[in-house]
Write a protein that binds this DNA or RNA. Sequence first.
DNA 1: AATCGCATCGTACGTTGTACGAGTCAATCG
DNA 2: CGATTGACTCGTACAACGTACGATGCGATT
Lengths: 232, 232
Amino acid sequence: MAAKGGGAQGKRPQRQAGSVPSMQQAGSEPALSIERIVATAVELLDAEGVDGLKMRRLADRLGAGAMSLYWHVDNKEEVFDLALDAVLEYRGPPQRIEAADWRGAIFHMLEDWRASMLRHPWSASLLPRRALGPNILNRLELLGRILSGAGVAEADLNGAIWSLWNYVIGATITRANFDLSDDDMAAAQQRLAHLSEKYPTIERARLLLDNDWDGAFRKGLDFLLDGLVPRQ
Amino acid sequence: MAAKGGGAQGKRPQRQAGSVPSMQQAGSEPALSIERIVATAVELLDAEGVDGLKMRRLADRLGAGAMSLYWHVDNKEEVFDLALDAVLEYRGPPQRIEAADWRGAIFHMLEDWRASMLRHPWSASLLPRRALGPNILNRLELLGRILSGAGVAEADLNGAIWSLWNYVIGATITRANFDLSDDDMAAAQQRLAHLSEKYPTIERARLLLDNDWDGAFRKGLDFLLDGLVPRQ
DNA sequence: AATCGCATCGTACGTTGTACGAGTCAATCG
DNA sequence: CGATTGACTCGTACAACGTACGATGCGATT
């Protein structure tokens, strides 16, 4: 309920440059750091899923005590926030995409966005949180810049950015959730078959069964861009 | 990990018609039932948010013991699933929308979808689960029927349904998350102002500040439909 | 009156996030 | 060189949670 932002909390260092942390027992792990914590959290999430991330387990993997984490991190929520943002780094489009090709640049960035999250399916379920980490902001900034350069009016920029963001996260969440294992697949098939009188269209469309997710994603993106960016 | 579907578990009744549950102490609450549990869960979620729903608290509100819930429900997860689906009932478009107006019908259904969830903001954060309750399936079925009637080819139906679904849930999640309280608003403004050198476009677009969410939602939907449904 | 199945609940257990305060070590200062 | 400080670590402990288990109550059937 309370605002989290606040200002200086007195705790946690602001990592001034030049000071080497050092310190560690001889044959042991390197010292704890936010970077190492987040990286290990991502590993753990990849291996065990959202529910598999416990502070004790994370600490175990780091060769540390559970409470040691709390010097670097306020609480478990923050670990989630950081892990989510960590997965969303973007290095920019390859050379092959020329600067003038705004459509290619947007496609590259948004497809990379979706792909990055699908590589870590837990990240999709973390999207419904208010965390705007630096990597997300970077992507939004880039998106805005490209759209602006492509001719989107200042007044429409806002809506255009959100529309694309919405589409991407929606598609990613759906895909991550319905990326069924074979077991689930069989179960769904049976459940649907059982209800096919009530949902004939769903059955006919084979909605849950065979999907060209990637193709559908690109198509919808195409349509959105056709509308959002004025053709000249 | 295991499949949840399964078949008959021996437990829980399949509520055969005609048998009146009856039974309750004199001046006390009516007997427990899934309907009452779900309705109360929605109330509690509205009041306290996702983290506020605890089995004990829910039972308290129902005037029951915590463990009594488990006769009607397998676990807490199922309460979430049921609550989510409960919020998504759809009664269909009003008379004013003529049968031939497929676009109006789609708009009405999807806007109602989004509005229903925004009335219960917690529901947005529950979307990343694989629960396809009857109300969601109903909506998907209706959506497919309308699209099919509007001329979408059988082969494209699948992708069209998902594209719209993706867009709706993405927009809803975003909106529900960034529907900032005034406190958060001020915090965001300050944080952004502080970073405006790094994110000039975001700043210029006032991305987090003033948004015509509803208008942007409709616009994007328009563009998607323009592309998805063949114009004749 | 005896039996059965539906429905409720009290108690108890294991697990979790984390508050608290004591401990360790390097750098700094006198 | 000894004392002090501040960055960092961790053991212990606690409260809250989901829920397993078995006991209990009650209406209907026999």
